[in-house]
Simulated assay, not measured.
Amino acid sequence: MKTIKLVKHIDLNEVFGLLEHPEAGGMDIFVGTVRNHAHGKEVMQLDFEGYEPMALKEMDKLATKALEKWPIMKLVMIHALGPKKIGEPVVVIGTATAHRRDAFESCRFLIDELKTSVPIWKKEYFGDKTVWVNAHP
């Protein structure tokens, strides 16, 4: 079972609930949050935008690849869109598997691939009022 979505707010308790499975002995959850600095400057907030139809399609492709490669019982890929403050979660990747190694490996694959292939962009608002726009590198 997979859950893939773009949202305005990420509920971490909901994510845990979506991953629970009685046969899963390993659950790995990666949470990416807004940090207060980048490029040697103070960050005030981030704003995420994405081409939603393509982003969801690419996220689904990545989930399918992971499900083919690892024995995943449940998989969650959620990315937030819109303005986010320091400390707020912006992306959550989670997998539930029978064993921890599969959970760790599949979760790492998913976040690494998401950052290279999913069309989501961010604006960084710095303390000196400059704005820098980038796609996931």
Rank of each mutant, 00 (worst) to 15 (best):
D11Y: 09
D11R: 12
L12G: 03
F16N: 06
G17C: 12
L18W: 13
L19R: 05
L19F: 10
E20S: 15
P22H: 13
P22R: 13
G26D: 00
D28A: 15
I29Q: 00
I29F: 03
F30E: 00
F30D: 00
F30L: 09
V31F: 05
V31T: 13
V31D: 01
G32I: 15
V34R: 00
H37G: 05
H39S: 08
V43A: 04
M44A: 04
D47C: 12
F48T: 08
E52C: 15
L56H: 03
K57V: 14
M59A: 12
A63E: 00
A63C: 06
T64K: 09
K65T: 14
A66G: 08
A66K: 03
W70L: 02
M73L: 13
M77H: 06
M77L: 15
H79T: 11
L81Q: 02
L81F: 08
L81T: 07
L81V: 14
V91M: 07
I93K: 01
T95M: 09
T95Y: 05
A96E: 03
A96M: 11
T97N: 09
A98V: 13
A98S: 07
A103F: 13
F104H: 03
L110V: 12
L114A: 07
L114I: 13
T116N: 07
P119S: 07
W121V: 07
K122P: 11
F126P: 00
T130D: 05
W132G: 06
W132R: 06
V133G: 03
A135D: 04
A135T: 11
